[in-house]
């Protein structure tokens, strides 16, 4: 075993820079290099079409919906769980928020009603997941798989398998707008990331999440209300799925039960590639953002070069495996 001698006050000295970056900056270095490499490849192969401000905004906008879901997923995975239902909860929320009576009610009051309804549907689905997992002692994988299937089914019933167009004008003009030259969708993503980072790294909620993921029994015996907190974590994940549904409505101007199909896999991939441990106990919001950005940039580079989505998927698969292998090497090293 290599023993490094650390003076008792070393913690305070190194803290200034590294703690400002949440300690994850060092770990994220590999991801930043990968992202930069993709930018170089993009610039070489597609030139100015790729390396323009507009295109970079496109990449971020493309990343934003999966990105918001991935922030919720980061919490769930850090707590040692998994949420497979986020994609279909997104679909369900988009359908409920665009039901004709909801839209009529929104038109007669305020467009924000649609936003609230979508987020509430997400939160409610998360609450059900949380109760079933924390109090019903059902394994998260199974509970959220059941929610995946059920939410998609309910969305189909409610929408009658049709696509419900968003006709509420206030919603469209507000959500499809820009603020200082940057689309609202991107702003939402930025705000969710900032809030997620703060909650995970700076609050008691975040500390409980990490503690439960790191050692559930130790957290319980230290007096932390483990079940209640796990429920909160799944609610949080549901809420981000609801926010993502709002963003989806803004981007596509329609609600449908097929929205968000397979998003859970993209979100899990982004979280794991970002460096959050799948067994829980360590989570990084910055890593998740980088993970999402890597996949989004990859898609953009491939699209700019007119390569098929099939080739893209192969590249994605390779990246996931490579990243997880690197992560395991890191985990092994930290154990020694």
């Amino acid at each position: 075993m290599s023993t490094q001698t650390v003076s008792p006050h070393a913690g305070d000295k190194r803290s200034v820079l590294s703690r400002a970056l949440g300690g994850s900056a060092g770990r994220s270095l590999g991801l930043i290099i990968a992202l930069l490499a993709l930018f170089v490849i993009g610039t070489i192969t597609a030139g100015d079409r790729f390396a323009s401000f507009d295109n970079i905004l496109t990449i971020i906008r493309f990343a934003s919906i999966i990105g918001v879901i991935s922030i919720g997923m980061t919490f769930v995975i850090t707590a040692g769980g998994i949420d497979l239902s986020v994609g279909s909860v997104l679909g369900l929320a988009s359908v409920v928020a665009t039901l004709s009576w909801v839209q009529q009610f929104a038109t007669s009051t305020n467009w924000i009603v649609m936003v609230i309804v979508a987020i509430a549907v997400g939160g409610l689905a998360g609450l059900i997941n949380g109760i079933v997992i924390a109090y019903g002692n059902v394994v998260a994988f199974i509970a959220t798989l059941a929610m995946l299937v059920a939410a998609r089914g309910l969305a189909e019933v409610l929408a009658n398998r049709t696509t419900q167009i968003v006709i509420e004008p206030g919603f469209l003009s507000a959500m499809r707008g820009e603020l200082i030259g940057v689309p609202i969708l991107v702003w939402i993503f930025v705000v969710v990331v900032a809030a997620g980072w703060f909650i995970l790294n700076r609050t008691t909620f975040g500390r409980r999440t990490v503690a439960i993921g790191g050692n559930l029994e130790a957290a319980r015996l230290a007096g932390i209300k483990v079940k209640r907190h796990l429920m909160y974590v799944y609610i949080l994940s549901g809420l981000t799925a609801g926010i993502a549904a709002v963003m989806m409505l803004a981007r596509t101007t329609a609600g449908t039960s097929t929205h968000g199909t397979l998003y859970e896999l993209d979100a899990i991939a982004a979280v794991v590639v970002g460096g959050t441990l799948l067994i829980g106990g360590r989570g990084t919001i910055m890593g998740t953002v980088l993970g999402v950005m890597i996949f989004s940039t990859l898609t953009n580079v491939f699209t700019q070069n007119n390569l098929s989505t099939s080739v893209q998927n192969i590249a994605k698969g390779v990246i996931i495996v490579a990243a997880v292998m690197l992560q395991q090497r890191f985990a092994n090293r930290s154990k020694k």
Partner: peptide, 13 residues
């Protein structure tokens, strides 16, 4: 607790 590692500590924290 009896099992220090599995019930008491969060080893990587």
């Amino acid at each position: 607790p009896e099992e220090r590692k599995s019930q008491g500590l969060i080893l990587d924290e």
